[in-house]
Design a protein around this nucleic acid. Structure first.
Lengths: 232, 232
DNA sequence: AAATATATATCGCTA
DNA sequence: TAGCGATGTATATTT
């Protein structure tokens, strides 16, 4: 179906247009107040917003700044559009969460088809893993990968293997500079691996990332783990 | 300034409209291909997209599904709009990242003002902290809060205090159900606090959250920490 | 600018 | 469905 636009519609005309979406996305420009309730709660006084309703139910209300919508509902939400007190009201609901957009004025209603996207991204953690598996010496001279996603009681180890002297090694990969939480993650895996193997088994932990923060570096040292600088 | 719309514009008319934005946001509906390069890299074949350019430089390209844009640039990006080979091309750049939107067809260009939003959200972690400070017995009978955001070598403890018997307590607050990472966080704080006080000081850790996963519960037990169920 | 943690995070995968 | 971790996470706060 084709695109369709209504400038300065009456509330009733806007309502009818939205009801006519038929699988298309809808954008609403105008002055509206917003009320969200669900995981948290918030209200926003009337102001000019850009509201996007996608065919999968996702509802995004954007203000002047920022990447994030100021209010939203996740995909899968269901919606009702109505005129109340001569104002266009869009109500969305999903999983106990609600978002109400009450328009004091509508400047434009646009209906337009949107296509699915299958974007392939490169430079991810998976790319880093492939790099390490293709050339394990990048981690350490003599490192031999034995498994990826090796399961432990604490979760899956990115790359499990043995070093040149045969000691078990847990490798945690990060595609960007890391802070303390990544060290905690590696620490949990190393602990779990020690238990899984046997009580006094020697297990090393190696964090592979482009760089680490000072605090993360200190935690690595305290816990006896190694750091290898490497980018995806 | 007022809103302004151009349906099925020529590439030149679309370009001139975007250049006329003058502090307004711009939305572009049409068929475009996308190319991102920066922290990672991705390309997306031509398809129907909804592109939103905000006055702060944020650029969002939406496909049919999902809360997230399929490609974007962060606020602060700078942009150029041009016609190349009879196609409208929007190039954005910020901090070494680039996003190019090449339109094979433009259905609508809309220019409209957007207002800033100052949304007050309730039900956050801060609300949970206020609740705990107003009634410390919610954490534990006899718990006395002594500081919030108490600094340690591992970071700031949400609530620091002492229990009924005078033992130091680190309280970590989470507004929703928590997994292993929150336990790791609490663990780091307790370790750091033990060092900060003195080598053999007794320090307890208490995780306050609506609920915990099984694995997180196990990690809490292993590390000798307590869990208190409490919602914001 | 760097570091750290929160978020109505979202998203994808796996058991 | 729930749990778990990655994400081009974004965002706010503090140093």
């Amino acid at each position: 179906m084709d695109a369709d636009y209504h400038a300065d519609p009456t509330p009733e005309a806007a309502r009818d247009a939205v009801r006519d979406a038929a699988g298309r996305a809808v954008s609403l420009d105008g002055v509206c107040e917003l009320a969200y309730d669900g995981r948290a709660a918030s209200t926003l006084a009337p102001g000019r917003r850009h509201v996007l309703l996608k065919p999968d139910g996702a509802l995004l209300a954007h203000a002047a700044t920022g990447h994030q919508p100021v209010n939203w509902l996740a995909p899968g939400a269901t919606h009702e559009i109505a005129v109340e007190d001569d104002e266009l009201v869009l109500r969305g609901e999903r999983d106990g969460e609600t978002l109400v957009c009450r328009f004091l004025a509508v400047d434009l209603v646009a209906l337009f088809p949107l296509d699915d996207a299958d974007s392939e991204v490169s430079g991810t953690e998976e790319d880093l893993r492939e790099r390490v598996l293709a050339d394990p010496d990048l981690v350490e001279e003599g490192f031999r990968p034995l498994a990826t996603e090796r399961d432990t009681a604490a979760g899956a180890i990115d790359v499990y293997g043995k070093d040149a002297s045969g000691t078990a090694v847990a490798v945690e990969l990060k595609r960007r500079r890391v802070g303390p939480s990544a060290v905690g993650q590696l620490d949990r895996y190393v602990d779990a691996l020690r238990r899984d193997l046997h009580a006094d088994a020697e297990v090393r932990g190696i964090l592979v990332a482009p760089s680490v923060t000072d605090r993360a570096r200190r935690l690595l040292t305290e816990n006896g783990h190694d750091f290898v600088p490497l980018s995806p």
